[in-house]
Simulated scan of single mutants.
Amino acid sequence: MGRIVYCNGDFMPEEDARISIFDRGFLFGDAIYEVTAVLAGRLIDNDLHLDRLERSLAALSIPMPTPRSRLEQIQAELMARNGLSEGTIYLQVSRGEADRDFLYPEGLAPNFVAFTQARKLADTPAQRNGIAVDLAEDPRWARRDIKTAMLLGQVLAKRQARAAGYDDVWMVEDGLVTEGASSTAFIITTDGRVVTRPNSRSTLPGCTRKAVLRLCGDHGLRLEERGFSPDEAGAAAEAFATSASSFVMPVVKIAGSAIGDGRPGPMTRRLQSYYIEAALNAEPLHP
């Protein structure tokens, strides 16, 4: 039996799930999504992800497709039906379906789909050895704080970086790094300060970012929320990226510059350990 997904009120085999060709997420990218990691049968930072889902939907005036408590039940049921102990759960809510028109009618019922993806997240080769990131001018729209399904800019940037031999890409605008194509960018200065850009409309307010900032406070690490340039990033002692599916990912090369000695640094290793420890101590979600 294959994967079981959720589609507009029902659990079903993935091959039976259908969305109309008039769905506005398909026609206009008029949709919001979230991805929550699952580790050892626990949803990681799920409250932060559902907070962001609600905030993003409200910013586009799309109603919640179902009460939040029901969303959590659906997530738990998907984990149980698919035997998921490690991987991700993807949620997507579109405005709904109507004949193609930029001006949508009022009162559309949102379409809501959710599915699991089983994959190894913790202690991967990339997390052990670090990744190389390219730099690219940020091509995205102005409201990056809303987690929309419009990801073509990121798709193109990631493909270009991969073709050039890099694992990922960080975006640059007005001389400063904004964020990764699907992650938050961090550097650690030579005097041990953890630096990341503050939240604004230019960046997505990362859920893993928020959890890592909390860990910095809990463990007495010095933190600065400010912008940094590609040159400062290249001269940093350490660098890392955070996301729901990669947790704390060491970055050992940025464009042509090796970071530190070209290996994951000690503070990044500490933050990796702190994050996994906190994740494994989270309460498991039961259907």
Rank of each mutant, 00 (worst) to 15 (best):
G2M: 12
I4R: 04
Y6C: 05
C7S: 04
C7K: 10
G9T: 03
G9L: 04
F11M: 01
E14H: 08
R18F: 11
I21E: 01
D23F: 05
G25V: 07
L27I: 04
D30A: 04
A31Y: 09
Y33S: 02
V38A: 02
V38W: 08
R42D: 03
L48M: 06
H49R: 01
H49K: 00
L50H: 03
R52G: 14
E54V: 10
S56D: 10
S56I: 07
L57T: 04
A58G: 11
S61A: 15
P63G: 02
P65N: 00
R68I: 10
I74N: 01
E77A: 02
A80Q: 06
A80E: 05
E86K: 01
Q92V: 04
S94K: 12
E97R: 15
L103W: 13
L103H: 12
V113P: 03
F115T: 05
A118S: 01
K120Q: 12
K120M: 08
A122M: 03
D123H: 15
T124D: 11
T124H: 09
I131N: 09
I131Q: 08
A132E: 06
A136C: 05
R144C: 15
K147E: 02
K147R: 12
A149Y: 10
A157N: 02
R159N: 09
D174F: 07
L176Y: 13
V177L: 01
S182I: 10
T184G: 14
T184F: 15
A185M: 05
A185F: 01
I188Y: 00
V194S: 10
V195S: 09
N199S: 12
S200Q: 06
T203A: 07
P205C: 13
G206C: 04
C207R: 00
L215K: 14
H219A: 15
H219Y: 15
G220C: 15
L223C: 11
R226V: 11
R226D: 10
R226C: 11
S229Q: 08
E232D: 03
A233T: 13
A235M: 01
A239W: 01
S245T: 05
S245C: 06
S246E: 15
V248K: 09
V248H: 03
M249T: 01
K253I: 00
A255V: 09
S257D: 15
A258E: 15
D261E: 06
D261P: 00
G262I: 11
T268R: 09
T268Q: 10
R269H: 08
S273N: 07
Y274Q: 08
A278H: 05
A278T: 04
N281T: 13
N281W: 04
A282T: 14
E283R: 11
